Simulated scan of single mutants.
Amino acid sequence: MVSFGRDFEQQLSFCVEARATFCNLEPVVIQLIHTVNHLAMETRRVMGGNHSRKTAAFVRACAAYSFITIPSLSSVFSRLHLYLLSGQVALANQCLSQADSFLKAAVSILPEVPRVINVEGKQRSSEPFLLDFINNFLSTLLVVPDHPEQGVLYLVRGLLNMVQDYTWEDNSDAKVRVYISALPLLAAMSQESYLYTIPKVDSNETLYGGDPKFVAEISRVCETVIGQVLDYLKTLNQDEGARRQGTLAFALFSCLLAHGDLRNNKLNQLAVNLWNLSHKNGYCDTRTSVRTLEHIKQQAQQPDMAHLSDMLLRLSLQSRA
Score class of each variant (00 low, 15 high):
Leu39Arg: 09
Ser72Trp: 00
Val36Ile: 10
Pro27Leu: 03
Ile33Glu: 03
Val272Glu: 02
Lys122Trp: 11
Cys222Ile: 14
Val113Leu: 02
Ile70Gly: 09
Val29Gly: 06
Ser126Met: 09
Leu312Pro: 01
Leu308Ala: 02
Arg44Tyr: 03
Val119Pro: 01
Arg53Ser: 12
Ser108Thr: 14
Val107Ile: 15
Ala40Thr: 09
His147Cys: 09
Ser97Ile: 11
Glu169Phe: 06
His34Gly: 07
Leu91Ala: 08
Leu236Tyr: 05
Arg220Ala: 15
Leu12Met: 05
Met311Val: 00
Leu308Met: 08
Ala258Thr: 15
Val290Lys: 10
Ala90Met: 02
Pro114Cys: 06
Pro128Gln: 09
Tyr232Trp: 12
Leu183Ser: 07
Leu312Phe: 01
Pro148Gln: 04
Asp100Gln: 14
Ser203His: 09
Asp7Gln: 04
Gly158Leu: 04
Leu96Gly: 10
Ser101Pro: 00
Ser278Pro: 12
Phe77Asp: 00
Arg177Lys: 13
Met162Ile: 12
Glu112Lys: 14
Gln150Asn: 14
Val272Met: 01
Asn264Pro: 00
Ala105Thr: 07
Asp146Val: 10
Ser125Lys: 06
Leu186Arg: 05
Ser316Trp: 01
Val59Tyr: 07
Ser108Gly: 03
Arg243Gln: 12
Gln302Ser: 12
Leu267Cys: 02
Asn265Asp: 07
Tyr208Thr: 02
Gly210Gln: 07
Pro148Gly: 08
Arg60His: 08
Ile68Gly: 09
Ile109Phe: 04
Gln302His: 05
Glu17Ser: 10
Ser126Lys: 11
Phe58Ala: 03
Ser316Cys: 09
Pro27Arg: 07
Leu262His: 06
Val272Ile: 15
Asp165Ile: 10
Val152Cys: 10
Leu312Ser: 03
Arg220Pro: 01
Lys104Gln: 13
Ser75Val: 08
Glu9Val: 14
Arg79Met: 01
Phe133Lys: 11
Val221His: 07
Arg320Pro: 03
Asn171Met: 10
Cys95Ser: 10
